[in-house]
């Protein structure tokens, strides 16, 4: 079991969600599809449904706290868009109010509202994206295009926290011998800081040389590198990928036919949905709730079907 470097006590691992076990390509497809839907289906019923589902997806991932913070942070932005759009945009047939030559139309207010909603959904999607599509998985996605660059990025990413830790150690040690960066005049502090940076660079250079030795000892640059794929692409991944592609493909096709898109300009259209509209809404809902469906199935397998031991 791994130990925490600071405390020397075991680190507990959280349980894995089903979606975390899927291949990064499936994850990427899902997020692209959701963001696409949020930008294409400009309709209050669609966006409202997606908003609720996206909150649900984040709650399943236990990032409720972050959702709250994002919603809190976006209140101002939503208000801004809703106020600004009617002010600068006076297209539309239904005028609510005029003052000083500015027309406030129902269309512009509605458009602002929908834009804001769509933006919030995209933000929520990114919370989930950051949680599941970690930098390692992202790197895996792009290692196909440039293995060398990927290795470099990976080493750099790993290096940054080490660098910071080393710098803290050096600041502490130097202060013990009388070189302070937090005391004295500006000139004195700048001189100390430059000294410390020099110490850090020298130390890092020393270590980098050792790493380089260890790398060449293990045959780095002795042959054209291959790339070990740590995320396998299983049959299950293939099934889900096809499912997501099919579903999102059909959604985008319907959208291109104008279904699920509220006609706003020049004159606000009918809010109500046709039968086809409801069907597309269902499709979008199923698409967006993908992580919840996976989790629900997992829950059902263990609790309802009594496969548990």
């Amino acid at each position: 079991m791994a130990m925490d470097a600071n405390t020397g006590r075991p680190i507990r691992h959280p349980r894995h969600l089903v979606i975390e076990q899927l291949n990064p390509w499936v994850l990427l497809t899902y997020y692209v599809a959701v963001v696409g839907c949020a930008m294409v289906f400009i309709h209050p019923v669609f966006l409202g449904t997606m908003l609720i589902l996206m909150v649900g997806v984040n709650l399943v991932g236990r990032s409720g706290h972050r959702v709250l913070m994002t919603l809190e942070g976006s209140v101002f932005m939503v208000a801004f868009i809703m106020v600004l759009n009617p002010l600068v945009n006076n297209r539309g047939a239904h005028v609510i109010w005029t003052f000083g030559g500015v027309l406030i139309t129902v269309e512009a207010v509605m458009y602002g509202l929908l834009m804001a909603l769509s933006l919030v959904i995209v933000l929520l999607t990114f919370i989930s994206y950051n949680q599941y599509l970690t930098s390692q998985k992202f790197m895996y996605l792009f290692s196909r295009f440039s293995p060398k660059l990927t290795l470099l990025t990976m080493m750099t990413l790993r290096f940054v926290p080490l660098f910071i830790k080393r710098f803290k150690g050096i600041i502490q040690a130097q202060s013990l011998r009388g070189i302070e960066v937090e005391q004295g005049g500006f000139r004195q502090r700048s001189i100390s800081l430059v000294k410390l940076m020099a110490v850090l660079l020298e130390d890092s250079f020393d270590r980098a040389l050792q790493t380089a030795d260890a790398m060449s000892a293990r045959g780095y640059a002795s042959h054209k590198r291959t790339s070990f794929q740590r995320y396998r692409f299983t049959q299950r991944d293939l099934v889900w990928l096809l499912w997501l592609l099919l579903l999102s493909g059909s959604c985008f096709f319907e959208a291109s036919q104008g279904i699920g898109r509220l006609v706003i300009y020049p004159s606000l259209g009918q809010m109500g949905l046709s039968v086809e509209g409801w069907l597309v809404l269902l499709e979008v809902a199923i698409l967006v709730s993908f992580p919840m469906i996976l989790e629900g199935w997992e829950w059902g397998w263990w609790h309802l079907l009594k496969h548990g031991i």
Partner: peptide, 26 residues
């Protein structure tokens, strides 16, 4: 030095690193 010899971010990648260098298949 235990720290300075590590190149990758997790153990399995660290093990794979050596073999990737000599051009072995996945």
């Amino acid at each position: 030095s235990p720290d300075d010899q590590l190149v990758m971010d997790n153990v399995i990648q660290e093990l794979a690193f050596s073999l990737e260098n000599v051009g072995m298949s996945s």
